[in-house]
Nucleic acid binder design. Structure first.
Length: 811
RNA sequence: GCGGGAGUGCUGGAGUGGUCAAACAGGACAGACUCAAAAUCUGUUAGCUUAGUGCUUACAAAGGUUCGAAUCCUUUCUCCCGCACCA
């Protein structure tokens, strides 16, 4: 017999909504903030992978709620962004309309998943009430010097038709277009000074309870290195370079400047101009693939640099392997002690000068430590010490200083696209760059624009032409919009006070709810959203908006759900599992329980038909059991098992070992007797509830309860009731059944009856479990005490009897 | 290249020093029920072996530590992920 799961689910979803049972307010109770990364609402709706992600959070939220915490568990939408704009253009629709429909669909689907969100706290970034505060923060940052405008070589994706942040370039490709090389353009753009917090971002990583790999990814991304800045004299001017190995300065035999250095041409003398330009053209056409194995190449610029310590004159080359935006875009080359420089020197027959003893530099550079040679007064000094001493010497001569370099770059936030928050800036011919006054916020994104080539905002005249707030003269609005990562950098704060019209959020509300205790989301955000949000928190702290250092105390990365074929779900592969269908066929509780039983929440897993069907059978068994169970007294055995399970399940959920919790819950159900106490039944339901919220509500009410199980207290294990002796006795019985089966199989042939001989003191335990042994062996069982004179024992098996090892005779 | 993680039986996947031939689930096979099937229940699922609780081989491979290792250490191999010429 099957059940109409869908009907049960709809019934309880309605009741939850009507009674607003997941609605929370600030209070005296201890809070707990569970948060999943809010989705970008795509028109294709949710697939089962999302369901997995949100279910992981929902189980946790429900668990914490039952444990008595005041749980904030909100959901919202990262509604602005390029994909919506592109999709809308393709569908000849408007991004706003497009996104609104998608959001509606998302909400419907999320409700059907049984997620216990407080929908009153929802946030959508496309609402002017939200993005107004983006603009507000933009101005605050600008005021504080955290935002600035500069012309710089920036990443440009020709498909997106916009610039990209450094974090959005992966392997030289656009993060959204794996087939599109990112070009470098020199443009004037808005930047956020994330580097100001580089050190704090790096230091505080240590304090976070995050997956180790994410922490390492962030550390690498920030990339702190200690070194020395050294001034070289070139054509009468000084040029700084950064090195981590000042101890090798006497080994400098040439310099290499990045081919993308903005002032490169200052170094190129007339006779070399042709060669250099030819070279630049050549490396421009190099594809990304070739770059991976690319040989180091370069051309002489014609200029020389003077090594400030030994006054040696060394040639300057343009090279394809030097980054323009790290350090100063130029490096001192020490071929004897740097492999890259070594390769370059070999290729162009430049001299190689050993300055550190310890390696053989014929075949490759020696990058280790050792004693200095050929280094003037620093000879015989150890390289580690020489780093200090040479830096001191340079400082004394005002030719250099200690420096820390970060790999992290400032965050480029302007985008030349429509579907984003307008940057609240006005350009006036007379007054220059003028911020929009706070009282004029929000700068509303106009709806009537033409999509096609370039930035659609350029086509809205009413948007562009404004009066200068300062001189009231004719002025022009900024048409760039903000990177949507700006939106997602503080949405978790807005959830705490989402309806505030006067402020982005109330500080006391935020103080109560924040920081997020448990954040859940994908690892792909390690170096994007998770860095930006951390930066934002720190910046807001220094502006007095919040009073903590880190937004997300604990982070959990969920695994991926693959299709039945073991491949990533994708439309083209046709292996996408649709939640609406699953809900109809199996019920959402079944799907939730199934998804979580497959593997630990942080591991990938495959969808399987057999799997979900077997879980459905289990669900039906649970329902049937509750229908038929008789209420009475609970025996010590089930009490023992129950309390052990409570203990384990609680720990398993707490530590995100849902798969193990599921196993223990299933095992416990298998042990439930036909008659037991209401208390045992209720506690069983509570253990199951976070996973299967609808069915447990239904069964809970069938047991005669008027309140919601969703708001009940999580059971606490009574460890006194855990009885190991009973467990042992049970094991002995199982062992006996196993032995009987073993013998049965060995001798073959049909047997109908088993005679069992046990020690007198064990008679009771085995005797009480005769039924079980019968069931497991399929034989009739007769049991005797060895002391029993009337027992039937033709082969005298009772002689073999030992403690916990009864004698067995089959016939 | 660097960094991180992982390799367990037909499959997924527990298990981090003895209680381990290794939970649980799926699959397969067998039995019970049934006219039959499905569902349900029970058993078997490394090999050998005796009317049972025994032995052997096993947790990527090879070594090592230990009275004792899937579990600790070393080396190698394979796979996944991240960064990738950061000076």
């Amino acid at each position: 017999m099957t059940y109409n799961f869908k009907a049960i689910e709809t019934k309880w979803q309605k009741k939850w909504e009507e009674k607003k049972i997941f609605h929370v307010k600030e209070g005296k109770k201890k809070k707990y903030y569970v948060l999943e990364m809010f989705p970008y609402p795509s028109s294709s709706g949710l697939h089962m992978g999302h369901a997995l992600n949100y279910t992981i959070g929902d189980v946790y939220a429900r668990f914490k709620r039952m444990q008595g915490f005041n749980v904030l568990y909100p959901m919202g939408f990262d509604a602005l962004g390029l994909p919506a704009e592109n999709a809308a253009i393709k569908a000849k629709s408007h991004p706003k309309k497009f996104t609104e429909i998608a959001i509606k669909n998302y909400i419907r689907q999320m409700k059907e998943l049984g997620l216990s969100y407080d929908w009153d706290k929802s946030v959508s970034t496309m609402e002017p009430e939200y993005y107004k505060w983006n603009q507000f923060f933009f101005l605050k940052f600008l005021n504080k010097g955290l935002i600035y405008r500069k012309k710089a070589p920036v990443n440009w994706c020709s498909k997106c038709e916009t610039v990209l942040a450094n974090e959005q370039v992966h392997n030289g490709k656009c993060w959204r277009h794996e087939d599109t090389d990112v070009e470098t353009k020199n443009l004037e753009q808005w930047f956020i000074r994330t580097t100001k917090y580089a050190d704090e971002l790096l230091e505080d990583v240590k304090t976070l309870q995050w997956p180790e790999r994410i922490k390492i990814m962030q550390k690498n991304w920030i990339g702190k290195s200690y070194g020395t800045e050294i001034q070289f004299e070139i054509n009468g001017k000084t040029w700084p370079i950064f090195t981590t190995r000042p101890d090798t300065i006497y080994g400098v035999t040439f310099m290499v400047v990045s081919a993308k250095h903005p002032n490169l041409m200052d170094l190129v003398i007339e006779e070399q101009e042709k060669d250099v330009k030819k070279f630049l053209k050549k490396i421009e056409t190099v594809s990304e693939k070739e770059l991976e194995t690319l040989e180091k190449q370069g051309v002489f610029t014609g200029s020389y640099a003077i090594n400030s310590l030994n006054n040696e004159k060394v040639p300057i080359y343009v090279g394809n392997f030097v980054l323009a935006d790290y350090g100063s875009g130029m490096v001192m080359a020490v071929p004897a002690h740097d492999q890259r420089d070594f390769e370059f020197a070999k290729k162009y027959h430049l001299s190689i000068k050993e300055v550190i003893k310890g390696g053989d530099i014929k075949e490759r550079a020696y990058e280790g430590e050792g004693e200095l040679v050929n280094s003037g007064k620093f000879d015989r000094m150890n390289s580690k010490k020489a780093r200090e001493e040479i830096t001191k010497e340079l400082e004394k001569k005002k030719l250099g200083k200690k420096q820390i370099q970060y790999r992290l770059k400032d965050w480029l936030v302007s985008r030349q696209r429509y579907w984003g928050t307008p940057i609240p800036i006005i350009y006036c011919n007379k007054c220059g760059v003028v911020p929009v006054p706070e009282k004029n916020l929000p700068v509303i994104l106009p709806e009537k624009v033409k999509f096609g080539k370039g930035n659609p905002l350029e086509t809205s005249r009413s948007f562009i032409s404004v009066k200068c707030p300062k001189c009231k003269g004719k002025a022009k609005r900024e048409t760039d919009t903000m990177d949507t990562f700006f939106d997602s950098s503080w949405y978790y704060l807005r959830y705490c006070d989402n309806k505030n019209k006067k402020k982005p959020f109330d500080i006391t509300k935020v103080r109560y709810w924040m920081p997020v205790d448990q954040y859940i989301g994908g690892a792909e955000h390690a170096c994007m959203h998770l860095i930006y949000a951390r930066f934002f928190t720190k910046a807001l702290r220094d502006l007095g908006f919040v009073a903590f250092d880190e937004p997300f105390t604990r982070l959990f990365n969920q695994g991926m759900l693959r299709g039945m074929d073991g491949n990533k779900m994708s439309k083209s592969k046709g292996n996408v599992i649709n939640p609406d269908e699953v809900s109809r066929n199996y019920g959402m509780d079944t799907a939730r329980f199934f998804l979580l039983s497959l593997a630990a929440p942080d591991k990938d897993r495959d969808w399987s038909k057999e799997g979900i069907e077997s879980i459905q059978k289990f669900m039906i068994r649970v329902i049937n059991y509750f229908k038929n169970v008789k209420i009475g007294k609970a025996d010590a055995k089930i009490e023992s098992k129950l309390n052990k399970a409570i203990k384990q399940v609680t720990e398993d959920i707490e530590n995100f070992r849902y798969n193990l919790a599921v196993i223990k819950i299933r095992e416990l159900f298998n042990f439930l007797p036909d008659k037991t106490s209401k208390d045992v039944l209720e506690k069983n339901l509570k253990l199951l509830h976070p996973f299967c919220p609808h069915i447990t509500e239904e069964l809970w009410s069938k047991l005669g309860n008027k309140e919601f199980i969703s708001l009940e207290k999580w059971p606490v294990s009574d460890e006194k009731k855990i009885n190991e002796k009973l467990e042992k006795q049970e094991q002995a019985v199982e062992k006996l059944a196993e032995d009987i089966n073993n013998i049965k199989n060995l001798i073959g042939g049909k047997k109908a009856k088993a005679f069992i001989y046990v020690l007198p003191n064990e008679l009771r335990n085995y005797g009480e479990n005769l039924g079980l042994i019968k069931k497991k062996t399929g034989l009739d069982i007769e049991i005797y005490s060895v002391a029993d004179k009337n027992k039937r024992d033709p082969e005298n098996k009772s002689k073999k009897v030992k403690p916990e090892r009864p004698g067995i005779y089959l016939e």
